[in-house]
Design a protein around this nucleic acid. Structure first.
Lengths: 208, 208
DNA sequence: TTCTTATTCTAACTAACGTTAGACAACATA
DNA sequence: TATGTTGTCTAACGTTAGTTAGAATAAGAA
């Protein structure tokens, strides 16, 4: 087996196991989908990046669609876990702005600094085949529900502007966070600062 | 010439002129790019929707890249014109929130209700070939400058929260407006209401 | 009516795509 | 060492993509 373009997973064995190779394929796919979209990424490209030939990918996955569905779902699961974890931690503070801040930071960190998978989901979801989209929607909806729960609890504690439509706010919040993918450069920017900047506007508003 | 899938441009001539056909090709391209992305849209698909065969497209355009560059630039020009027009009209009100509101509405209206081109730009810019991206960036920058001008003038009039980073706000604003493309359905929603909902949060903030 | 011009069609090219089946190689175990 | 199992390579398939050059057609002008 020739050299791989990804950092190789260290094992005591010369030849990687199927789970390891499978992971390598998914990592490559997530990275490429994130940057170029679904249709523009070929199996040969993914295989090349994973250090193998395209035909070999079929030992691990049934189709390109199966790969992208797994990338999409993993992406949402990761950000869901991160936000859930932050929510659980921040809850006891009983501060609405603290809770929202921590969850926003968790979302942005996952999206911008830790997961090609989450980035890929955001960038390509709208362009994958319909069948894949339908399958991925299930996990996506769960994440939306998590945010509804977070925002709902803050509102129930009387800490939100009463006139704000929570559904719209959630759409706007996640939309604006996800849109940072188009311009934020993780190598030259600080996610924490970015989150704080966004939160200031969202929580306090723009006008004097 | 067989029936076209687009509403035909009414002329006194039996056979459309090149400009008319050219427009039809661009309309088809913008529509398809918007929905499926760049790579997934074929010349044959565009030609089919424009009511011709793929080879004929080459009489009007040199390449697929030439088509997409034109779609991208037209998209930005349209939203730029709309926002510029709203800015010019709202200026005399001397009300910061009025100015911002009108410009936001202009942006959203163009994006969601009037222009496949603008929608296409937002959705595919990050995925077109590098060379196209570089070319399209010029026009894009001008639109960003327009917003910088708008926000700068409101701030200079002392009507903005002093601590807000204008560049960040602009990125966040345009990002969140553009993200509405992923979920807003123009056939079942009201753009004006959407704009008002967003503005309320952005101008007044979320917290009590 | 004929000629000219503009526009579209057609057939084909090369390259690339997702996928398949079987050969091959590497590793583990008896 | 031989055998069995796992994982990769290879060659090929049928299809699709962007593009090209020349033929064909339609419309307008003389």
């Amino acid at each position: 087996m020739k050299g791989s373009l990804l950092p190789s997973i260290q094992t005591s064995k010369k030849r990687p196991t199927a789970p390891e190779t499978r992971q390598r394929i998914l990592d490559a796919a997530a990275h490429l989908f994130k940057d170029a979209g679904y249709a523009a990424v070929s199996l040969r490209g993914i295989a090349d990046m994973a250090g193998m030939k395209a035909g070999s990918v079929y030992y691990h996955f049934k189709s390109k669609e199966e790969i992208v569905l797994e990338v999409l779902n993993t992406g949402i699961e990761r950000v869901h876990d991160a936000v859930q974890s932050s929510y659980d931690d921040a809850r006891e503070s009983r501060s609405g702005s603290r809770i929202i801040s921590e969850c926003v930071k968790a979302h942005l960190n996952t999206l911008l600094a830790h997961s090609d998978y989450t980035s890929a989901n955001v960038r390509i979801y709208g362009q994958v085949p319909q069948t894949v989209q339908l399958d991925a929607k299930i996990v996506r909806r769960k994440y939306e529900s998590l945010w509804d729960e977070i925002l709902g609890s803050v509102k129930a504690a009387g800490q939100l502007n009463e006139t704000v439509d929570l559904r719209l706010f959630r759409l706007m919040l996640i939309g604006s966070l996800n849109a940072t993918l188009e311009w934020f450069d993780p190598e030259h920017g600080n996610v924490e600062e970015l989150a704080n900047g966004y939160l200031e506007i969202l929580l306090n508003g723009l006008m004097e």
